[in-house]
Design a protein around this nucleic acid. Sequence first.
DNA 1: AAAAAGTCCAACCGCCTTAGT
DNA 2: CACTAAGGCGGTTGGACTTTT
Length: 271
Amino acid sequence: MGRAPCCEKAHTNRGAWTKEEDQRLIHYISLHGQGCWRSLPKAAGLLRCGKSCRLRWINYLRPGLKRGNFTNEEDELIIKLHSILGNKWSVIAARLPGRTDNEIKNYWNSHIKRQLITNGIDPQTHHPLNFNKTTVITMTTTSTSSSTVATQLDSKNSSQSPSSSLTIAETSSILKKQNDDDKNNNNNNNKCISKPKRKQANYNISSITTKKESPERSLGQNNVNLELSIGLIPFRSNYMNSSEESQTATLCLCYKLGFHGKKLCRNCQKK
DNA sequence: AAAAAGTCCAACCGCCTTAGT
DNA sequence: CACTAAGGCGGTTGGACTTTT
């Protein structure tokens, strides 16, 4: 027997939200804040399931949401974070102010993924699709905090290869901030008296690998121990001469992946 | 102009985690 | 310790819209 439904579906509206429903939800939350989603629909006079209200609020009505196109900087950040975290959309979204996990997930699936494939890069592993010869994983566990997992890829698509680089310090900082944010949210949102908002999952480096990860991610990276370090060093192709190398070294990841048109983003222009 | 194909994205579904009992 | 319930998450769907034929 399956799990009981989260709400009485026979008496709830489904599908697209009307303006009136939106207004009711906004009005209720502006007065009472976010609390128990399960009891909110009834209290707000909505014939909706609590989950539906939560989703509508988080993905659409919540103040501070950005609408419109993603910037090149956002593209770059999403790719970087995805190369580290995989499909952890909520964690990635936490690093992009004003963007929701759903939005990023949709954007990834409809834009970035296709773009990566077009450029010969596997969107799941962030490796070139045809790489097979010399995958060199080196791990440096020095006394400094800047140890990285270096993946040098041999590919003829050299100019389009991944070149993101996050040091362990950067990665730790991201994950630490996530924890801090979660703690703050918990402090701010405990308006539900009947049941305190439960603690959110604390992500740490050792928890990056997840239950749903593909074998490629957990094993395909040659059993890289994520507890030690994560990161990709800037790409250097064996096929590049020194001038090409120095030229591409000054360009940001999104440019190398082909996300720019004919213009450079601000990051590239600064360099 | 109409039909077909492709794209986008809001919303839903079902599973997992975890606090409370 | 086992069970329950609520929140949260990632994957998927379906309909509206756009582009192509």
